[in-house]
Nucleic acid binder design. Sequence first.
DNA 1: CTGACGATTCACT
DNA 2: GTGAATCGTCAGC
Length: 187
Amino acid sequence: METIARELLNAVLYTRIDGQLCAGRIVETEAYAGTVDRACHAYGGRRTKRTEIMYLPGGHAYVYLIYGIHHLFNVVTHRKDQPHAVLIRALEPLEGVEVMIRRRNRPDNPYKLTGGPGLLTRALGITTRDSGVDLTGDRIWLEESGEPVPEKTIVRGPRIGVDYAGADALLHRRYWIKDNPWVSGKK
DNA sequence: CTGACGATTCACT
DNA sequence: GTGAATCGTCAGC
């Protein structure tokens, strides 16, 4: 749901995986709007073992493998059987930075530690094993950061990497915090 | 069973 | 700027 994609900006994503606590502030998201969105894995009402997670009630994690290499993390946002989700595209690291650096094992550009959907899952230790986990649990969870993002500093634009979605690729369902250096991709 | 391909990242020209 | 990496998922036979 698009409202939730906006609301998730500034929320803090925590993981406690392999005994390591990590946290990052969400600075970029994308909304995937269920069965009528060509860019959504559940387009047309498709239900498979993988996409079944998106049909769970909001508050679960939907994680999948892309290009055989990267794990992408989403928050399921709607009620049961409404397969909407928000992809977390970028974080600003807050806690466990040393752990993230070790997991990423590539200390070139610091903004690339968690500045991309495949990068932040690597840094936080999230994999497809975590698909379906309850985000109110103690392995992966979200917390409000207090201050909501001022409306003026939220920017929106077309989603990235969904050209196959035809006209739906043009919809402005990507949200990010203006001028935040951790935001991935281009304008 | 088989083949095509992806909500990406990185190395290299 | 281009192309490779790499494998689970999915549709089709």
